[in-house]
Nucleic acid binder design. Structure first.
Lengths: 195, 195
DNA sequence: GTGTGCATGTAAGTGGTTACATGATTGA
DNA sequence: TCAATCATGTAACCACTTACATGCACAC
């Protein structure tokens, strides 16, 4: 436990959580942006295949990233009047992110937490009508999300820097369409259940 | 802060997390089981559409559930020699679980955390070959999971108490099949990318 | 007699959320 | 002038994981 206070922290003592890389990734596309903008971005795209951290989490992540030298920030530029802080990725950050992206030979298992399925799984405790209603509600929500994804995809159209994000969005679009089919099939299964 | 030690705690001061209901749900099917068995169960079914808590978490959840009177436990029955603790759901617990299952008119949005998609999204930072390899790896893993789901589904076959869990497994099976298609389609998209 | 599975639990720590607090800017 | 949006941040809390510790039973 000697030397508790090193002025320059060792490059990376502990591995960063995926969230940190996701936030840094958001900054790896051309342009600078504020934490607030990052949150909206995450809501509009990341969310569909990874998840959107709380805004407070994004700010915390940005501070950590800055302390590692992976991003820099500047307060309210000459033109802009507001008290806002704009972040940009550094060369070091880009390098670290590229290392992370290229390192693993296995991205890791996907985590799915589907509350609707949890209810269906416990279906013996409630009425068939209620279960049906939940599935129907889920279908409606999914249709809404599908619309959002398609809008996001349209915005990325043609911009070459967005090529990969667009593939992710296309995947999400197909995924949501399949989610609808899955829900319909489950509705049919539910109907075939003996009362 | 008067009366810190009420012998019978008020039914539920704070809402329980979904995990608690999932664990209680595991006990809502006929039979008693140990924490260890619960974990294996969760790994074999819950995991495919919700997720499997760490074993230590399951033990913690069981203690909480017991303190609420939702489950009871007994140590090593007359026959069984080992130091194990077997849990069973109580009428109170079953009631609370049924309330939870029947209460919401909306199960809540599904959360998907797909590390592979995160890498693809950041594809501009790595090589097309590496990206392809990750997708291929994911396909292999998914095939393995599909096999597991089908095995689990086969075990539930015909048992009437498992009707709903089986629907959840059937959903999972279809979902994994669609996951494979999605991955293949993404592979095709990746190939069409200009270098 | 040794490793694997069964079985339970503690301690420490991280990741993340919600609620709260603050204030400037924009447009109806 | 009032509400919504932009913008940042703190504090408290909780959910959950990892690592560790322990020990029995059984098969090879």
């Amino acid at each position: 436990m000697a030397d508790q206070h090193t002025s320059a922290p060792p490059p990376a003592d502990r591995a960063l959580p995926a969230t940190a890389w996701a936030v840094l990734g958001l900054l790896s596309f051309p342009g600078e942006r504020t934490g607030y903008e990052l949150k909206k971005w995450a809501d509009a795209s990341l969310r569909f295949f990874y998840w959107s951290p709380a805004i407070s989490q994004i700010y915390a992540e940005l501070r950590r990233l800055e302390s590692l030298g992976y991003v820099t920030s500047r307060r309210s530029g000459p033109e802009e009047p507001r008290t806002k802080r704009t972040y940009a990725i550094t060369a070091l950050g880009r390098g670290a992110l590229a290392d992370w992206a290229g390192s693993a030979q296995d991205a890791g298992a996907a985590v799915l937490k589907h509350p609707l399925l949890l209810r269906v799984w416990l279906g013996h405790l409630t009425s068939p009508e209620h279960l049906r209603a939940l599935v129907v509600e889920h279908i409606a929500r999914t249709k809404g999300e599908l619309k959002e994804v398609m809008d996001a995809g349209a915005q990325a159209e043609g911009v070459e820097a967005w090529a990969h994000p667009q593939i992710a969005l296309r995947w999400s679009e197909r995924r949501l369409k399949s989610e609808l089919e899955l829900a319909e099939a489950m509705l049919a299964d539910l109907d075939e259940l003996p009362s």
